[in-house]
Amino acid sequence: MKPIISIQNLTKTYATGVHALKPINLEIHAGEIFALLGPNGAGKTTLISIICGVVNPSGGVVKVDGNDIIRDYRASRTKIGLVPQELATDTFETVWATVQFSRGLFGKPDNPAHLEKVLRDLSLWEKKDAKIQTLSGGMKRRVMIAKALSHEPKILFLDEPTAGVDVTLRREMWAMVRTLREAGVTIILTTHYIEEAEEMADRIGVISKGELILVEEKSALMTKLGKKQLTLQLQSPLDAIPESLAPYKLELADKGQALVYTFDTQATETGIAALLKRLNELGIDFKDLQTRQSSLEDIFVSLVSNPS
């Protein structure tokens, strides 16, 4: 399948000398939800801004649906809706005027019915004649989303869409994003909330210090990097782990009340059976056991702290 966005050797060095992007290569598939994860200053916003035409690239090529973002900027930009990270609204304008402006700016003829639908979907219809300065922060963010959707983009960029948005609204936004995806819109979002990526994304890219250190299907990522932990609640506490258990790299937890065994789900031999047998031989009894799969958050933290 032809990618809807293809990024080749994209670099960015700001005037200040900051290398915000080392050569980035990435393809986004049509119709997917792609989540870009990374710590503060990793280069997420820079990457998005370049694709959308807000920041100039220093090198490399980006194509949107086959159109070069510089040479064929009209064709590429027409397809893109952008919701930037920073709240930026036309304070003194009404909601309606500002979405109507956005639609026109993207060369689309007036279409009040579409704008009404967008505003209704974002629960902004009641506020359509309100001045933006009278809206709450969460509403302003939705106005920015409405602006981006006003011109019916094929690709939607959401740069931290749920920052400063309450839980209920966040869930509503997730639902909205899914509806958009069902309608065929490709969505690229950045987030600091791992649960958000875990919940929504089809694929995940992890960016750190301007480098894309990993791009993976979410499910593959979870299994590939996913570690499981087996926790055994002991009948009687241990002072130390017996010598003979050293190969299992066990940890004592809960003041010696629990033994924790971390294993790789991908390994052919998890070693659980052998471990349990060994414990039995040593006369270590346990009253309970649980396993826990590591979350995307654990994966993310381990990736960013020691990139391989």
């Binding site: 959308c52 035409g53 807000v54 952008l82 709240l87 930026a88 304070t91 700016l105 993207f106 060369g107």
Partner: peptide
């Protein structure tokens, strides 16, 4: 004003010459 409020992003990202 759009430069100051930041709303200029939309003009920059729009298919306009």
């Amino acid at each position: 004003i759009p430069k100051w409020t930041g709303t200029i992003y939309q003009v920059l990202s729009a298919p306009v010459s």
